[in-house]
Design a protein around this nucleic acid. Structure first.
Lengths: 137, 137
DNA sequence: ATTATTACTTGCATTTTACAAGTGAAAACA
DNA sequence: TGTTTTCACTTGTAAAATGCAAGTAATAAT
């Protein structure tokens, strides 16, 4: 799979990579739920199809947004981790969450509000705190 | 066209709306280039197909991210404007631009860097400045 | 030795996207 | 005033992406 870019615009180029309905949900599950394995990703409430999940994991790995490793003492379970490039998607996800919180309120029913509020009141602090937390798990 | 949501997650729900390769590019052109008409949107360097452009404008209007009006003294040119809901997509676009600036540097060739740097050094100030500027045009 | 789990792949129907051409009304021009 | 552009789309069709169900192969558990 070769990545194609429509232009040299930074926004357009990012969308060429993550501009679909599934890639950022995988990243979301890694960032916020600590998911690591193919099986775990398949269990999200949005029910990603297994072939699409496989395709996206491959793409994200090729783009070095995630990396694939083996679980110690287990030869069949693969462990996916976020690279630095992948972790840096966090602020994008938080701004998306904040936008939804502001503008999709009637639809949502979720415990994400306090989370979003902590981000709003101190964006840099929140992001740094999340990065620190990820080191430990 | 009825909007469907895969879950009540804020991130997933936002992606159900703007998670494709074109919607945010239209918003980009409205925010950063002041584009307003169907013809102007069609001229972006990414070459959106006319049927897709039409489809996205309709969707974005239904979702009240943009609104459609008439140009004064002209019965054929339509004017699309961002609603508040649409303007609030700016921080998402800026975080995307910043991510690309950090992580896609070898690919990009664009004068967006100083722009991104102003955002990085003072995010809230940058966003407020942009909103103020948009009032005037 | 058998069953269950994990991480996928495959085939096919449906939906979305892309490309090219066409339409109809308003505006500009001769 | 008649003709040509311009503008904002729509339509038809091929190609690509997505969604769904079932299947496979290796490892791990019983």
């Amino acid at each position: 799979m070769e990545q194609k870019f429509r232009s040299t615009c930074p926004i357009s180029s990012a969308l060429d990579i993550i501009g679909d309905k599934w890639s950022l949900l995988i990243i979301r599950d890694m960032l916020f739920s600590g998911k690591k394995t193919y099986g775990e990703f398949g269990k999200s409430s949005e029910k990603i199809a297994t072939n699409i999940l496989s395709n996206r994991l491959t793409k994200l790995e090729e783009l070095e947004i995630i990396s694939k490793g083996k679980m110690e003492g287990n030869k069949k379970t693969n462990i996916y981790s976020l690279t630095q490039k992948g972790k840096e998607l966090l602020p994008i996800l938080m701004e998306i969450a904040q936008w939804s919180d502001h503008n999709l309120n009637d639809h949502l029913q979720d415990g994400a509000k306090p989370f979003v509020n902590r981000f709003k009141s101190d964006k840099d602090g929140f992001v740094k705190g999340m990065y620190a937390m990820m080191e430990k798990r």
